[in-house]
Amino acid sequence: MSLKVLLVGGGLTSALISSLLKKVPVACQVWDKARGAGGRMSTTRSPTNSNCTADLGAQYITATPTYQSKHHDFYNSLLSSKVLENMTCKVEGLKDFPEGTKHYVAPAGTNAIVKHFFAEGGHQLHFEQHVSAIDLQPDNKWLVRTKSGREEVFDAIILTMPVPQIFQLEGDVQDLLNKNSELTKNLKSVKYSSRYALGLFFDNNTALRNIDWDSKYLSDHGVFRFVSLDSRKRQLGDQPVAAVFHTSITFGEENIDKNGDEVKIQLLSEVKKLFPQWPEPKSVKCQKWRYSQVLEAYPETPGYVFISKSPPLLAAGDGFVHSNLDGCISSSLKTAEALKEILVQKTD
């Protein structure tokens, strides 16, 4: 009989673990509070033109020679499936990387990377399922509840949400954390940057045609750190243009608790100052990322931690390594291996 495993979170780490568990005799489900897969690899469509899309989270993938070799199978899977392509667009202000580093873009949007690995795993995906509580059952299993009232029992759980959100869960999971002061201290030491992303959808490919860059880092701007013409960044010259702005860490931290509509108005005003000649967009999306990139990872970057070994309850993700594709791959490899060892023992 296969054991039931729940992955909480619909982002990259869950997708990778799902893929790694595809040959393990488990009945795996993925629950996420959002309406679709992606997490911080978020691709958004214009409400007035479905062909106009923008990456509001991760922008492109950078792979150093070390990780190209270490994670070759993952990159080969993405490249052979055309989910990733070599980045050839013009990026102003791109910092220096080790010789041999490669940059990739996802032509269909960065959430295609997450969808690719979920498809490889072939497990059940359930969206709009906001996990609210985890309780231990007398038969040494986990009862998981959502805010909408769904309840289901699992043999093992892997939490892949940003680390601070673990402390928002109710039930016996909090009792476990309260009894392990060292684990709690280390989990609370994980820090993330906060940012806003602003997407301007122009819905045609001529609106910003005269700009001589595709993406640009703004090192000396007080609000924005990065701007990208998304279809051009993804090398889709004939597609409608969407412009994406990411704020600086400082602006994000100072404004993360403000009303989103107020911040959107402020950001649009800053765009007008930067690019007064731009036409009015057809639509606008302001995305708040309270947990953007990892600033301080879990001590000694183990890739995952056990909150409970029996029954298994693990926490994993970039907070236990570092923020990028390779950090999530590293976490996923270690997490999947740890879970496999426990599951083998349970089925013996």
Score class of each variant (00 low, 15 high):
D326G: 04
D175G: 06
S215V: 05
N111H: 10
T347N: 15
W31L: 10
N210S: 09
L343R: 09
T301Q: 14
G222W: 02
C286H: 09
L274M: 14
H126C: 04
A15S: 15
E85D: 05
A315N: 06
K102W: 00
K70Y: 04
V244A: 02
L325W: 01
F154V: 10
V294A: 09
N86K: 13
E120G: 04
G260N: 13
G303K: 13
P312R: 14
R195T: 14
F97Y: 13
K288Y: 04
K285T: 06
E254D: 15
E85T: 14
K282Y: 00
Q293P: 03
D326S: 13
A207D: 00
T206I: 05
M1F: 04
V294L: 06
H221T: 01
Y67M: 10
S18H: 04
N111W: 05
P299N: 10
K346D: 05
W213G: 00
D155P: 08
A338P: 03
S310M: 11
G303E: 07
S219R: 14
A297S: 15
G122N: 08
P107T: 11
H72G: 01
E85I: 12
S248Q: 14
K147R: 13
K179C: 00
G36S: 15
G39I: 07
N76Y: 04
I256W: 11
Q124F: 01
Y304L: 06
D139C: 07
Q239K: 14
P240I: 08
S331I: 13
G57W: 08
K70C: 02
R40I: 06
K346R: 12
G39L: 08
H246I: 07
Q266D: 12
T110V: 08
Q129A: 08
I113R: 12
K115V: 02
S193N: 11
Q345A: 10
E280D: 14
T146P: 03
V284M: 09
R145S: 14
D55C: 00
S2M: 08
T250C: 04
H246C: 04
A197D: 09
K216R: 15
L267K: 13
S77Q: 15
N140D: 13
C52Q: 07
A207F: 01
T53N: 02
E120H: 01
S323L: 05
D348A: 10
S248W: 01
E120N: 11
R150W: 04
K272A: 11
F127P: 02
E270F: 01
T347E: 09
V24T: 15
E92I: 11
V173G: 07
V305T: 13
S193M: 01
L198V: 01
K288M: 07
D230G: 03
S323M: 06
P47S: 15
L343Q: 02
V5F: 02
C328V: 10
K346Y: 01
I113C: 03
C286W: 03
S215T: 14
P279S: 06
L183A: 09
K102S: 06
D73H: 07
G122V: 10
W289F: 12
I113N: 11
L16R: 04
K23I: 01
F201S: 05
S269N: 15
S193V: 07
R209M: 05
F251A: 09
N51A: 05
G171Y: 02
L218W: 00
K216E: 09
P240Q: 07
Q168H: 13
N186P: 03
S46E: 08
L177K: 11
V8T: 15
Q235S: 10
M87D: 02
